[in-house]
Amino acid sequence: MYPNLTGLGIHDPKQIERYSLRQEAHKDVLKIYFLKQKGELFAKSVKFKYPRQMKSVRVDSSSQNYKDVSEINRNLTLVIDELNQITKPATYTQKDIKKKVLSDLRHLEKVVTSKIAEIEADLEKLK
């Protein structure tokens, strides 16, 4: 019923609770969250990275100038269509979007902080 999700190794799509999609450099990162099972402290999740497709698009019809643009991977759009059928995502208000952007910013801050700490620890080993 969901061939693209099955292709990702998800054999029980009914266990999917929600998903998130973000862009990192030239990749789209899809994270799928599953329903929390009894006795689990945290719900399980899986992460998939899709490279963005690069295209050269003519800037205007009168010149020979081209501009490189990236777009979402076709396979990812098919997976998202299936996920939307399962999760039936709600429409977001401007307040919800602001909350999500702030949440993404905090997540990025944590990732950068931990990476800096990791690099500093590696530098200490070199002394």
Rank of each mutant, 00 (worst) to 15 (best):
E17H: 01
S62N: 10
S70R: 15
Q15L: 11
R52V: 13
V101P: 09
T77H: 02
N73W: 05
Q85E: 11
S103G: 10
L21G: 13
A43I: 05
N84L: 14
L76M: 05
H11S: 15
Y66T: 02
E71R: 15
G39N: 13
D81A: 11
S62T: 01
P13Y: 14
S45M: 12
E109P: 03
H107E: 07
S56A: 11
D68H: 15
K67D: 08
D28A: 10
T93W: 03
N84G: 03
H11I: 04
V69P: 13
D12Q: 13
Y66I: 06
K98Q: 08
L35E: 13
K44M: 01
I72N: 06
K98E: 14
I72T: 06
S56R: 04
L76D: 10
L102A: 11
K14M: 10
Y66G: 00
Q64E: 04
E71S: 13
V29F: 11
E17W: 02
K38R: 05
L108H: 08
K14L: 11
F48C: 11
K98P: 02
K31A: 12
S61C: 02
F34H: 01
G39F: 01
K55H: 10
Q85V: 04
Y92D: 03
Q23I: 11
Q15M: 02
D60W: 08
I97R: 01
L21T: 09
E82S: 07
S61A: 05
V101H: 05
K27H: 02
L76K: 07
I72L: 06
A25L: 08
E109C: 12
V46A: 13
L105W: 01
Y92K: 01
Y19Q: 05
H107N: 07
L35M: 00
V59T: 02
V46K: 03
H11N: 12
R106G: 11
E17K: 05
K49F: 00
L76R: 01
P89G: 07
T77S: 13
E82G: 06
L30Y: 02
Q64H: 14
L83S: 05
L35R: 05
V59M: 09
L35W: 12
M54F: 00
Q37G: 04
N65F: 15
K88Y: 09
M54I: 13
F42W: 07
V101K: 03
L108N: 15
I72Y: 15
S56M: 08
K99N: 10
I86K: 04
I32T: 13
T91N: 00
F48H: 04
R22H: 06
N73L: 06
N75R: 10
K55S: 14
P51C: 10
D96Q: 06
L76H: 04
E17V: 06
D60F: 13
N84D: 12
R18F: 05
L35N: 09
E40W: 15
Q53C: 00
S103N: 08
Y33M: 00
L102F: 00
H26T: 15
T91F: 15
E71K: 15
Q37M: 03
T87N: 04
S63A: 07
K98M: 11
V69I: 08
Q37E: 12
L78W: 02
I86G: 01
I10F: 13
T87S: 14
K36S: 03
R22T: 14
